[in-house]
Amino acid sequence: MANLIEKLFSSPIFTWWNSATFGTRLYTSRKGVKVGEDKEGNIYYREKDGKRRWVIYKNGPIEASRVPAEWHGWLHYTVDTPPSEQPLPTKSWEKDHVPNLTGTAGAYVPPGSQRAGGQRAASSSDYEAWKP
């Protein structure tokens, strides 16, 4: 029973954070034209005869920070040519896009935090205890 409820609640009918909602899918199938995909597999669409641009998140939660910089530019009308047609010039020192990791295991913890293993750098308040 519990399993069923869980399934029901994770379905697109009830939630919008696991995958695209029913309405979005319907709209995408009627009006959407696929423009391209990014490295994570998110798919980008534009309206058939209109201005709208949107993304359907794949392989993960619906999380705006998963959109990489090049697609972010296209999605927000900064550029009109999508990066799938004309990739942005990249430098050798550029790092791969990383989504916001807050709330995940990869989240930042300050050095010395218990979540980082409790190992901290030496400080002037340290003392050396006597051992027999």
Binding site: Y127, E128, A129, W130, P132
Partner: peptide, 18 residues
């Protein structure tokens, strides 16, 4: 010297060692 060789916990002798 206040930070070196400090006693920071009680010790009790058990057998031969503290």
């Amino acid at each position: 010297g206040l930070k070196l060789r400090r006693l920071d916990t009680p010790y009790v002798k058990k057998g031969k060692s503290l």
